[in-house]
């Protein structure tokens, strides 16, 4: 060993590698806490040779600067959404598409597996440790939406991909930051919002909507990377790389389970508020799927244009989703 150490995780041991870790989730959010647990676990299992200071709440890099921040060394490690920098991840973008993601754990497992399998050029400069992703987006509204016709001309909050879905479904997409959405729903600036059910509790929006339409059939997701600067990674000796990789592999499911749990709590939250749940009939579900199909086609066309294996990626994702759905009771 390079340093004398009395015991693993001894607080007095001088760390050989100090890393900063930027997380955009607020510090008390379960995903930020899970990220902090990951950091503590890495520190502990490295015997104190690695020290990670976590900066949650986007206090070091904003959500849309996090990836670039990792590449440029603002933080050594970062957690944020691929979708916040549209165009930068032309292949991995598929992880967010409305493929009917069944739940957060499945989405998290599939996303991590596919990111590792394809490891595309677009992630050059950083090493992705793992990926996690939220459960399927649902439609929360002030007026009941039982069919596509009910959605026509409703104003729905959405940005980026979710805005595209709203438009494809015939609704009117209104873009605004998440913190403004509560007020906008309350005052009726928008009639609804597309989000994972967890958001209805996390951002309290459940207080100001009346109906929830189960749109899992076209469930989109948002994949989030946990990545380390490539040079920082390369500087680690093989045994420490091993430690980080092992802990990361264990935390894939922890994040996935946390997403599922958050969705369950979101569900309880809106149930206690007495909100009405609406399921779509199988025919109606088919219509919705048909409406969003052009979004998938556009992804395929853009990936093909850039010479990326978009079709393979999408097929793999769909196969894994079907597999997960089949395995469920």
């Amino acid at each position: 060993g390079r340093k004398e150490q009395s015991a693993a995780g001894d607080a007095a041991a001088k760390p050989e590698f100090k890393f900063s870790y930027s997380i955009f989730f607020p510090p008390l959010h379960i995903q930020a806490k899970t990220g902090m647990d990951w950091a503590a676990e890495v520190e502990q299992r490295s015997g104190g040779r690695i020290k990670i200071t976590v900066h949650p709440g986007a206090t070091l890099t904003k959500a849309d600067q996090c990836w670039q921040g990792v590449l440029n060394g603002i933080s050594d490690i970062g957690m944020s959404c691929f979708a916040y920098t549209p165009g930068r991840f032309p292949l991995l973008e598929a992880l967010d598409l409305p493929l009917g993601w069944p739940d957060g754990l499945t989405a998290t497992r599939v996303a991590t597996a596919l990111a590792a399998k394809y490891s595309p050029a677009e992630i050059q400069g950083a090493k992705i440790l793992y990926v996690h992703a939220h459960g399927p987006g649902i439609l929360a509204t002030k007026k009941p939406v039982r069919s596509l016709d009910d959605l026509r001309n409703l104003k729905i909050r959405g940005t980026g991909l979710s805005a595209g879905i709203v438009t494809a479904l015939g609704g009117t997409a209104v873009g605004m930051p998440q913190p403004e959405t509560y007020d906008a729903l309350q005052k009726g600036v928008v009639d609804g919002t597309f989000c994972p059910i967890e958001t209805l509790k996390g951002w309290k929006q459940g207080e100001v909507i009346q109906y929830i339409t189960d749109t899992k059939t076209i469930g989109y997701s948002t994949a989030m990377f946990v990545a380390i600067n490539q040079a920082a990674w390369d500087a680690l000796p093989a045994d420490l790389q091993q430690v980080v990789a092992e802990v990361s592999a264990e935390y894939v499911d922890k994040h996935g389970v946390a997403w599922n749990q958050a969705d369950a709590e979101g569900l309880t939250f809106v149930q206690e508020l007495g909100r009405e749940f609406i399921s779509l009939s199988p025919e109606e579900e088919a219509r919705w799927q048909q409406q969003v199909a052009p979004i998938l086609d556009r992804y395929l066309a853009q990936a093909a244009e850039k010479g990326l294996p978009g079709a393979d990626f999408l097929r793999d994702a769909q196969a894994l989703i079907a597999e997960a759905r089949a395995a469920r009771p």
Partner: peptide, 18 residues
């Protein structure tokens, strides 16, 4: 109200923004 600081506090501490 409305107040950005209240919104941030509410989200951080899971208190009702209303």
């Amino acid at each position: 109200p409305p107040s950005v600081v209240f919104i941030v506090y509410g989200v951080l501490t899971e208190q009702s923004i209303g």
